[in-house]
Each structure stands twice: as C-alpha cells, then as structure tokens.
Design a protein around this nucleic acid. Structure first.
Lengths: 216, 216
DNA sequence: TAGATTGTTAATCGATTAACAATC
DNA sequence: TAGATTGTTAATCGATTAACAATC
C-alpha cells in the first residue's frame, strides 16, 4: 500500500521505529522480525506489521525486515532524509544548550540561527552561531528556507514569538514553552514541554505504586 | 466517580489541562466551560467532560468549572502538589541547561543532584549545584528520597545509567537520550527526545503540505 | 423563568489484536 | 521439506463523540 496520509496513531510511532532501527543497525544487526521489534518497543507484532503495511516496503517471510531498507523508508516518510533548517528563538539556558547540541546535524536538522529579543544577549557567540536580534528573523527564515522554529522563550512571550515566526513563513513549530500555542491550520506544532513530561512521569509513578487495584 | 487508575488516553491529557488551567488563572479568569477549554486545546467538550467525570470534582451547570478547584484537583492527581526530588545524570549542555532552568521549583520539581562520569567535569559548579561523580549517586538518591532520574547522557551510555539509577531505587526516569530504555515493571519511563519530536514535526509539515488527498 | 452547561448513557468510530493462508 | 514469519482480513476492544435529561 502507499501514500495516503497515515493514521495519527501510526505516524506517532514512526520516530520510535526509526530510532530503534538506527540503534539496531549500529549494533551490527541486518534483519529484524516484527516480533523482535515489537518486544523491544513494547508493542505487539500485529501492530508492527499493520503499521508497515501502510508503506511500499515489504519484509520477507522467515527473515523479517531488512534494517537498511526499513531505515531508508522511515527516514523518507518522516522527511528526515533531507536536510531541514531550523531557527531557535530564545537564547536562554535551554536555547543555548540546543544550539550547542551536537546530535542534530547527524539526524538531518541544521540550526541556522539563534535569536533573542534581549539586547544584552544579542551579539554573543554560542558555538558557531551568534545571537541575533528579532528583527533579523524574517530575513533569515526566507533566505535560508527555514522550515522549523524552535521556541524556547518564557511562556509569556511564546505566542508572540510564534506569531512572528508564522508571519515570516515558518511551517512548523517545536514548542518548549509552558503554553498552548494558537496557530493557523497550515502550521504544524509539536509540543515538547519538559514540565509536562515530568508531570506525566509523576502520575505514572503514583499509578505504579498504587495497590494493583485490578480486581477489588 | 473516583480513584481507579485512569485510561492512559485520559492521563496523557492531564498535564495539558493543568497547564491551560494555570495559564487561564494567571490571566485572571475564575471559571471555564468544557466547551471553552476544549476549544483552546483542540478537543471536544464531550471529551473534556468525560475526562473530568473520572474525578471527585464537579462543575456547575451554566458556569462551568471553577479554575482554582480544577487546578488543585489536577495537581493532586498528577502528584504535582507535593515536592518531588530529581537528579540529573549527564552534565553536558542539555543537563546543565536543565539544572539551571528556573521553572522546575515553581512546578514542584526540585533538582537535588547533577552527576557525570567524566572526571574532568566532576567538581564544576552549575548554578548552586556541583557536578558529582557517579559513585555518589546511590547515597544521594537514598538520602534525599529522589523519585526521578533525568537522563541526558549520550545514547551509548543511557542504558547503563538507567541501570545504575534503578539499582539505587529510583522510581521514574525522564529519558532524553536517543535510545529505548529497558526497565523492570515497577519503574516508570517517559521519553522526551528532542530528535524524535523534530521528526514528528517534520512528518506533520510534510503531511500538511500534501495536496489535501481527502476525496480523490 | 429561559437558556446554558453539566454529567452520563448510548452510538460511533478508530485502533489494536487475533488468526491464518501465503510464502520464503 | 518443515517451520518461521509475513501480509491481510476479521474480531475485539477502547476511545471519542453525540445526544439529552438534569440542573443551576
């Protein structure tokens, strides 16, 4: 099967498949069965096979899936095979850490600009990048064909920054701020709030420690 | 209704509800209807009411839900009302940025230790914390009743670090490393991989730009 | 009061799992 | 060959939505 847009539940699993496949390859493996892949990710083999059936990619009975082909397929579907340019808005601790993070280029993501509205920070060097003023943002986005804006400003200014990015033609936002962003339909948003993840974890811990509750 | 463990789908929405509720309160609002809350988060009012029906907390016809009570309820369910101690393992850019991040205490999360296995980094100051050697980890976890370990080491050592944390009695892991962690059933894991979020975003962008495909 | 909004039941929808013939 | 594993159909399960009486 092919190219119709995937169920959201499937799309959400793709990054995990890709990660696992890349790590398995690095360990030297060539093939993986749906069962083994499912086990390592906490899924069922049925789910894995159903998921892969959405693509022009086949396994081979008795051997499973060729990891190399699987990686290529997943990377292509996720758009992680081409280079994607990003800007980071907010040169605080988090923004600077991401700007310095060495793993992005290897995965196809390139940071082409780091911005902050605080004039005391503008001009500082962060690795190879220099913190730029917000007014330089539209120019950089257009010139470098920037697809993604990473928002690491405080919650109070995140919506304003999002609006500026959108006005400048950005296509997707990675939001690290503790607010819900309102955006037009053509812009994609993925939230990556550490605080929310910690809350989720805190709940999961409580749930696990609760006296199993099942049949009582 | 009350205390049975929530469907996972519901639990996952709680942090978003809490965030939105806190932000609405900060803006000075006192009440919110299921419809308005749903609109701001991209849900339906039915979903919101269904979700809240799992708790000992009621709205009032014609007014909606009292934000103050809603916040208290969500914080309690998420375990975000008590202080939770955390350690960060990995004092690279990301680990240091999190250690310096000022928002955790206000949300009930306290960082009580920052660790790294590189002896050249051990001893350095990061804000009020000093980077400690891994051998000090078990002591700190036990003495400070640390519930959560935040893993910001490279993928290659993440599993090893997870194992050490688990051996020391940690109850939950926030995993920022690009690997899938294998843990015993009593330990909770929440993944927060920036790379995976970027891949998800990259897919979402592609999906949006694709010629609407609906009826063709 | 009239109308808005809740809480809840029932209907729909979609996602996961089971099962198995086809195949390497 | 025999047996493992795929791809796919059908069955199950769970989550979301619709609908509406109760209520403020």
């Amino acid at each position: 099967m092919a190219r119709t847009s995937l169920p959201y539940s499937v799309a959400q699993r793709l990054p995990r498949y890709l990660m696992q496949v890349q790590n398995l390859r690095q360990v030297g493996l060539k093939w993986i069965s749906s069962q083994d892949l499912a086990d390592t990710l906490g899924l069922t083999s049925s789910t894995v096979r159903q998921d892969f059936s959405h693509f022009d990619f086949s396994g081979i009975a008795k051997r499973g899936y060729l990891l190399k082909g699987l990686e290529a397929m997943l990377a292509e579907v996720l758009g992680a095979d081409a280079n994607i340019n990003m800007v980071i808005i907010g040169a605080g601790n988090l923004g600077r850490a991401l700007a310095l993070h060495g793993q992005f280029p290897a995965r196809g993501f390139k940071i082409v600009g780091l911005f902050d509205k605080d004039p005391r920070i503008v001009g500082r060097k962060v690795g190879r990048l220099e913190v730029q003023a917000m007014k330089a943002l539209p120019g950089v986005i257009r010139k470098s064909q920037v697809a993604i804006g990473v928002i690491t400003v405080p919650a109070a200014s995140a919506q304003e920054v999002a609006d500026q990015l959108i006005a400048a033609g950005i296509r997707g936002l990675l939001n690290l701020a503790y607010v819900h962003l309102v955006v037009p339909r053509h812009v994609a948003v993925v939230d990556a709030r550490i605080i929310s993840s910690l809350q989720e974890l805190s709940y999961a811990i409580k749930a696990k420690s609760r006296p199993a509750a099942r049949r009582s």
